[in-house]
Simulated scan of single mutants.
Amino acid sequence: MRIWFNRGFSLAPIAAAMRDADPTLEVFVSVGQNQPRYDGPSATLVEPEDSEAAYIDWVRETIAANAIDIFIPTRRRSLIAGAELDCRVELPAAIATLDLLDDKFAFAAAIAGTAYHLETRLITSSAALEQAIATFRETGPAGAKPCVKPRKGVNGHGFWRLTQDRPMSHLDNPDSRRITETLYIAAAAAAEKAGALEDLVLMEYLPGPEVSFDMLADKGVLLKFAARTKLPGGVQHIQTDHFLAPAAAALVERFALHGVVNAQFRRAADGSWKLLEINSRPAGGILYSEQVGCGLLADWSALLTGRKHAAQVSRPSIDTQIRLTTIAAQIAA
């Protein structure tokens, strides 16, 4: 059985984990032009930077040349879903749902009224940004701080906490993702003048901790999960029983999620838990869950290949902590 993932995040180690679980499985991964290749997949392909029609032609050629049985796209999903391909295509949700999940403002609006909804303001101009910050400081929760991020973005790209610190404070420690709000507004105004300001969302910054739910779903039913609470010092607390599990299961059912996906919750200053986003793909951190025996990727590969049915998926009892470390490896000169 051959599975192909097109361009995505952390696919090489995910491919390796799936192959370790089933040595008969071949997992192909494709990457962008001039992108690094890593050990893990059975083979790594390089994607062309072509028009939609040319890309689909390349997809068809790749499927035929490599005898691909299952294609799991993490990029250009709408295009791929509308094409006739000579293999099974696995998507984590309907295309309309995937579009919703990729839009942070639309997604926040969709879950309004739930206990884990985080009020989110849409920003389309520098003037709207300035007004939204002023309104937030006047009417937001006591002591709360605002933050911004792109309306459409992944992996925390573009996230900034807005402060009233010294103007140069963000240069002292850029990794803190804190910037004086007047400078951010000025930067937004400059981008707007150049016609390059993309939509933003503004919301309350949540101090945490954050709980990342790695989930295996079958057509809207949560089969198993691993909840990873991110703690200081590179520690993650991994559990297969968690008080947020009913909320996670409700999300899987509501959005008819399928396969391995991820939801991120974070605790607000008032102690309540809010949902930041649903990632319609495996999170890179799922590898930590896999290493301690949760088996989400192993069971996913078994479901994909038909070695298991949903009713056969086990739910191990795991409650452990891991610490992330850095290892230096010598390489050839």
Rank of each mutant, 00 (worst) to 15 (best):
A96K: 12
E204I: 10
Q33Y: 12
I72M: 11
A227Q: 02
D20P: 00
L85K: 12
F265C: 03
S42L: 02
P41K: 11
E90R: 15
G156F: 05
P209W: 07
C87T: 06
A311I: 15
A247H: 12
L223H: 13
A106L: 13
N262P: 09
A94V: 01
D99F: 09
R178F: 00
S51A: 15
I68G: 00
V31K: 10
Q164A: 07
R178D: 01
G306Y: 10
R307H: 14
R166D: 14
K149W: 04
S301E: 04
S30D: 08
T74K: 11
F105M: 03
A186W: 04
I95L: 09
D86Q: 14
D22A: 06
P174T: 07
V31N: 04
A187H: 14
L129Q: 14
V31E: 06
R254G: 03
P282G: 01
P167H: 14
G259R: 07
L129N: 14
L251A: 06
E52V: 00
D165Q: 12
R161A: 05
S126L: 02
W58A: 03
D175L: 07
N173A: 15
P207R: 07
I185C: 01
T180A: 04
L98A: 12
Q236T: 09
G293W: 02
H117P: 07
N34D: 15
D103R: 08
T120M: 08
E61F: 05
R307K: 14
S169F: 13
R228P: 01
V46L: 02
H117W: 12
P282S: 10
L101C: 09
Q35I: 00
D218R: 13
I322D: 07
E61C: 01
I286Q: 05
V89W: 09
A196S: 11
E192M: 02
I331Y: 07
A142N: 05
R161M: 12
I318P: 10
L11A: 03
G271D: 07
G113C: 10
